[in-house]
Amino acid sequence: MKKTPSIISLSNISKEYVMGDESIFSALSEVNLEIHKGEYSAIVGPSGSGKSTLMHIIGLLDKPTRGKVIINGHDTARLDDDQTSKVRNQFVGFVFQQFNLLNKLTIKENVLLPVAYSREKLDFDPEKRALGLLEKFDILSKKDSYPNKISGGQQQRVAIARALIMNPQLILADEPTGNLDTKTGNEILKLFEDLNKEGITVLLVTHEPDIAARTNRQIKVLDGKIVEKYND
C-alpha cells in the first residue's frame, strides 16, 4: 500500500437486492477497501461479480445496504441529497462504457454541463478550461458538433473532458473501453495513464484482466467479495 492518505474508505459494505420472488440477492458482502490519493487501480472481475455496484457505491450513485463509505474522512451516510450531489459534482468524475453524453447538447456544452450544477464560485474560467481540455484530447475542432456526429473514441474523450471539468480528485471509469475497438481503447487507456501521472486518482472497472494489468493495483471482485486470486 502507498503511504498517501486514503480518499475513499469502504468498511463492511454490503449491498442486497430484494428480487421479484422476494428472495434476497447479495451483490456485495462485507467489502472493505481503501483508495489512496494518486492511485491508478482497476476493479476487475467477471460480469455479475459486483464490480459495477462497488463503483456506484464509491461514486455515491448508489447506497449500500450496510456499511460505511468514508470520503476524505467524512461519513457519507449522513449526507442529504444536495450534499451527495455536490460530492458527485466536485469530488468524482464519472466515465461510462456508453459515454452517456447528452445528444442534444454540443460537445462543448456537454463538457460544461457539470459547471451548471455547481453552486460554488469556481476558481477557474469554465469556458477556458473546457476548451483547454478539448484541445488536450485533440477534439477541439468538434466543439460545436453533436455527440452522435463524432466517433466512439471521440465521444469517450468528450466524456473524460466532462469528468475532468470540475477538477475532481477521483475519476471513476466503468468499462471505458468496452464499446471501443482495441486501438481506440488503448488510446483511451493511455489518456488515463497520463492523467494519473498528473496526480489524479483513477479507478477503472473492467472485466478484462489485460486492461486491469496495465494499472498499478488490481482489486479483484468475485461473487460480491474482494478476493486475492481467482480460482479459474
Binding site: 461514486g59 450513485l61 441529497d81 444536495d82 450531489s85 455536490k86 458527485r88 459534482n89 466536485q90 464519472f94 452517456n100 453524453l101 447528452l102 454541463l113 457539470p114 450544477y117 455547481s118 466532462r162 470540475m166
Partner: peptide
Amino acid sequence: TREVGIRRAIGATKRD
C-alpha cells in the same frame, strides 16, 4: 430517464 441519470451523476440535485 437516462438523461436524468446522467445529470444526477454529474451533480444535479433532485431540485435541479
